[in-house]
Design a protein around this nucleic acid. Structure first.
Lengths: 198, 198
DNA sequence: CCACATGTTGACCGAACGGTCCAGAACAAA
DNA sequence: TTTGTTCTGGACCGTTCGGTCAACATGTGG
C-alpha cells in the first residue's frame, strides 16, 4: 500500500556512481548527486541515508561489478587461461596511455581518499583486492594445468605479484604515464609469471 | 625595512604538508591549515596565495623530498647496487602490513584525488614517476655492471616493471593488505629483474 | 470513494567553507 | 622619535555545505 517509488534504485545508484567517480567523495556535493540522479534530497535521504551511506552502497556495487567483470574475463575454458591472462594485462596497459583526463578506478580513488579514515572503505578494498588475487591465482593454476606456466611456480605468490603490477599500472594510468611504460610493466610481469610473450 | 616575518616558511610548509597528507586536499579546510601552521589567514594568503597554490607548493616539496630520499637510498658505491635494490623493495614491503590507519604516500593520494581535474598535479606525478623510473634504471644498470643482473636484460623495461610494482605495493598498503602479499610481490619483482633472492 | 501510508519536493537550518580586508602591530631606515 | 613599509590577526563576507522537516502528492487497501 501507499505511494510507490517513481525511480529505479539501481539506475539511481549508477548515476550516483558516475558523480562520485568523477569527483571523489568529498568533492561531490549533495547538489551534484541530486542533479546526477534527478532525485530530491528527501528521496535521497529517505532511500539511502546520508551521503556516507550512499557512497558505501555505490562503492559496494562498483566492487561487485568490477570483480564480476574480472571473473568474466578470466573464467572460461581452461585451455586458454594463458591467453586470457595476457589479454587482461594488455587491456589494462592499453587503457592507460590515453592522455588525461583519465578517470581512474573508483576503488583506487576511494581507497586513496578514505581508507585511512574510514574502516569500512578499507575493509571493502582489502576484500576486493583479496578476491582479485584469488581470481588471478586460479587462472595461474589453470595455466599450470595446461603447461603454459611451469608447474613449480607458487601460484599464490605469483598471483600476489600480478595483483601488485595491476594496481601499479592503475596508479600510473591515473597520472597519464606513457603507454610504453605500462606495456613494459605488463610484459615483464607476464614473463615473470612464466608466460611466454604475446 | 618593514616588519620581518615571524615564521619560517619551510617549517610552515612542513606543517601544511602534514595537514594535507592526513586528510587530502578537499577535506583539509583553511581552519585546519591555520591550526596546523599557527598562521592567520592573512599571512597564509599573503605568503602562498590561495589553498590551491599552497597545496601545489606542498606537493612540489614532497616530491622533491621523496625523489631525494630515493636517490639517497639508491645511489652509492656501485658494488652493492643489487643489495640496495633488495633493501628498497623489502623496506617498502615492511612499511605495509601495519594495520590501518596507514598514511599512504601523499603523491599517490593526490594523484588519485586530483590528477583527473588538475593538470599541474598530473604533470608533477608524471615527472616524479619518470624520475623514479630513471633512478631504478640506473640502479639496474649498476647491478648489471657488477654481474648481479644478467647483462642481456633491458634495463629500461625492467625499471618500468619495478616502478609499477612499487606503486602497486603502495596502493595495496593504503588498503592495509597483509604484509605477506607485499613481500610476495617484492620478492617476485626482484627475481623478475634477475636478482637472486635475499 | 475514502482513509491512510508512503514518496516527493523544496524551503529552511546552522555550520563551515574559501576568501577578502583592514586596523593595528612591529620593525628598519631616516 | 618619526616615518614608511610590511606583516599579523581576526572580523567579516557571500556562498555552499550536509542535513531536516513539514506540506503536499500519489498511490493502495478497505
Amino acid at each position: 500500500m501507499a505511494r510507490p517509488r517513481k525511480f529505479d534504485e539501481q539506475q539511481v545508484l549508477r548515476s550516483a556512481t558516475e558523480a562520485f567517480w568523477t569527483s571523489g567523495f568529498a568533492a561531490t556535493s549533495l547538489d551534484d548527486l541530486m542533479q546526477a540522479t534527478g532525485l530530491g534530497k528527501g528521496s535521497l535521504y529517505g532511500t539511502f541515508g546520508d551521503k556516507q551511506a550512499l557512497f558505501q552502497r555505490v562503492l559496494d556495487g562498483y566492487c561487485a561489478d568490477a570483480t564480476a567483470d574480472l571473473h568474466a574475463r578470466l573464467s572460461g575454458p581452461e585451455s586458454s587461461a594463458a591467453t586470457r591472462l595476457r589479454a587482461l594485462f594488455h587491456a589494462v596497459a592499453a587503457a592507460g596511455g590515453i592522455p588525461i583526463p583519465q578517470r581512474a578506478c573508483l576503488l583506487a580513488k576511494s581507497t586513496a581518499e578514505l581508507a585511512a579514515t574510514n574502516t569500512e572503505v578499507a575493509a571493502k578494498a582489502r576484500q576486493t583486492f583479496t578476491t582479485i588475487a584469488e581470481l588471478l591465482q586460479a587462472e595461474v593454476e589453470h595455466a599450470q594445468a595446461t603447461g603454459d606456466i611451469p608447474a613449480d611456480r607458487d601460484a599464490r605468490r605469483t598471483a600476489h605479484h600480478l595483483l601488485a603490477v595491476l594496481r601499479g599500472m592503475e596508479a600510473l594510468t591515473e597520472a597519464g604515464m606513457d603507454a610504453s611504460v605500462l606495456r613494459d610493466a605488463a610484459d615483464i610481469a607476464l614473463e615473470a609469471a612464466g608466460l611466454t610473450a604475446t
